[in-house]
Design a protein around this nucleic acid. Structure first.
Lengths: 135, 135
DNA sequence: ATAATTGTAATAAATTTTATTACAATTCAA
DNA sequence: TTGAATTGTAATAAAATTTATTACAATTAT
């Protein structure tokens, strides 16, 4: 997908990890990412369902990590927010053409294999590792 | 990118590889992929610049492979048509925030590493290999 | 000459992504 | 117990990207 969801999610989780003493508001987070606060709240909704974030409503509410940062891998994040295909979208090929008829099946195999290699790399890196880069 | 360019390009090259005796027209190719012929010609423009396709204008013109299919890897194709970042787009983070200020630098490192793993997998597969799946 | 085809520009349509507005529900704290 | 801050979410608008369409000059075979 040609969107900012992974970048946005990782940014959110990074902020929560680095300032784990107090819950952060969607307004504050949005200010760091430079996007709309409602988008932050929506993205956090997805991350909350994955157990990566917990929230607290009301005054002095906000967000904090739902798991230890050593237990969150970049692969968890990517898979949670990028449902689509890593090779891009597929066409609605012509079933009457012998090639078009089989094409999506074969490219899908290619995609799954390449995605496995990709995720295997991301799985080796935790949120804790990533946050260690910030000094 | 959330588009069909890789799928479209691989489909084009597959057709040319499987029917390498005669040049194929953009109309015929478009019929198999089920997209607009002009889009096929545009995509072929990019693949021609990469040396993967050669074209012949005029009556009975069309397209054929510019290289042996054993010399074209899926990685060549992907890199040629997917200029953007594999992790998705990045935000214009806030430079005044200590995290926002460094974030894109760090996520870019992550991206390059994961992309290398991904491309390494694609590089191990040639167009000839892929076309061998079609029976 | 004619017909088929590429190459390319210009524009429109469709789809996806992001931003904005609004407000009910919740929670703290004075 | 009232007011202020905040989440959660819906609805809508705006922006950006992607795909489709129209048009036509240039090229080439017959």
């Amino acid at each position: 997908m040609n969107n900012n969801r992974f970048s946005t999610s990782l940014h959110i989780l990074t902020l929560l990890c680095l300032e784990n003493d107090r819950p952060l508001s969607s307004d504050y987070i949005a200010g760091s990412i430079n996007i709309n606060p409602v988008l932050v709240r929506k993205e956090i909704g997805a991350l909350t369902k994955l157990g990566l974030i917990k929230s607290k409503q009301g005054k002095n509410g906000g967000y904090s990590l739902g798991k230890a940062p050593s237990d969150i891998t970049l692969s968890d994040i990517f898979r949670g927010v990028s449902p689509s295909n890593i090779l891009g979208r597929f066409n609605n090929t012509n079933p009457k053409c012998p090639v078009g008829n089989q094409f999506n099946h074969h490219i899908n195999k290619i995609s799954q294999r390449a995605e496995a290699a990709f995720l295997s790399d991301l799985q080796a890196q935790s949120l804790e590792d990533f946050c260690g880069k910030f000094i």
